[in-house]
Design a protein around this nucleic acid. Sequence first.
DNA 1: ATGCATGAGTC
DNA 2: ACTCATGCATA
Length: 357
Amino acid sequence: MMMMSLNSKQAFSMPHGGSLHVEPKYSALHSASPGSSSPSNSSNSEAMRRACLPAPPSNIFGGLDESLLARAEALAAVDIVSQSKSHHHHPPHHSPFKPDATYHTMNTIPCTSAASSSSVPISHPSALAGKPHQALEGELLEHLSPGLALGAMAGPDGTVVSTPAHAPHMATMNPMHQAALSMAHAHGLPSHMGCMSDVDADPRDLEAFAERFKQRRIKLGVTQADVGSALANLKIPGVGSLSQSTICRFESLTLSHNNMIALKPILQAWLEEAEKSHREKLTKPELFNGAEKKRKRTSIAAPEKRSLEAYFAIQPRPSSEKIAAIAEKLDLKKNVVRVWFCNQRQKQKRMKYSAGI
DNA sequence: ATGCATGAGTC
DNA sequence: ACTCATGCATA
């Protein structure tokens, strides 16, 4: 049984948790941070966020609650209307199943599929709305117009990526990083490149490395999935395999800053190993296999998603009750809604210098 | 490439 | 119950 595929992941997790504000190491005077308010970085960033978000100073919005919500809904509605563009040939797919398709099974088979492509036009629908709301409890739901959302046809197209064209940010974000992890240390490397240390955490370097990594990986004819599973063969203490998803996210810089930093040395180690092996025409395609059950992925229909986004813009951190209410309104399972909000928050935070928030 | 989900560690 | 790192499933 593959029992190692589980604990190996935790190797990178760091003990920073939510608001653990420690590890002030690293002289914070590397690269001047741009004007952009640093997104999320290590340690206390979370604490700060929390200290800022739940700030319902006065009820200046008291009377605006409704209008705000209405606006959110209007936005969602507009989306629906302005969707029938011109040429689109897609059957208005509506979730055929009730939002209850969430069966899961503990499947622990390492990646084995292959799929790799280039071009990474990352575009994220960052909802930049930070109105500290809170007084919109019951009303919040009273106003939602599920009829509108549900009634309107689901966007026939899958192209919902209305990239808000982010500015050509110059990178160099907050250099408030903490070195790599304790374990997972990259081993001695040839270092004949003379331009990178495995312990640096400069976003610019990360970006550069990710790019080089991808190119060289492709040159070696290795897929992201291959890299993921090959990682286990490196025998680095505490480092097991990773999924294609993670490799992909690393290459596209869609991981958190900390995560990028933690993974870099490992992937760098792999790259060097792979190139070495390649030179000597020696490959070690060690792959395991396993076959178990599958998991059905819940699919939230476009209309519901729009409503969720509208709510998110108003209140990114709804209370449990609110979540339950929203879930009911949208006819979704509460847990699905909760997870959706979690993922949405995570997306907003993920690395990738989003324009100025 | 990404959406929805799980689980460990926190708070 | 949340954040974070990850992963399966899927477009």
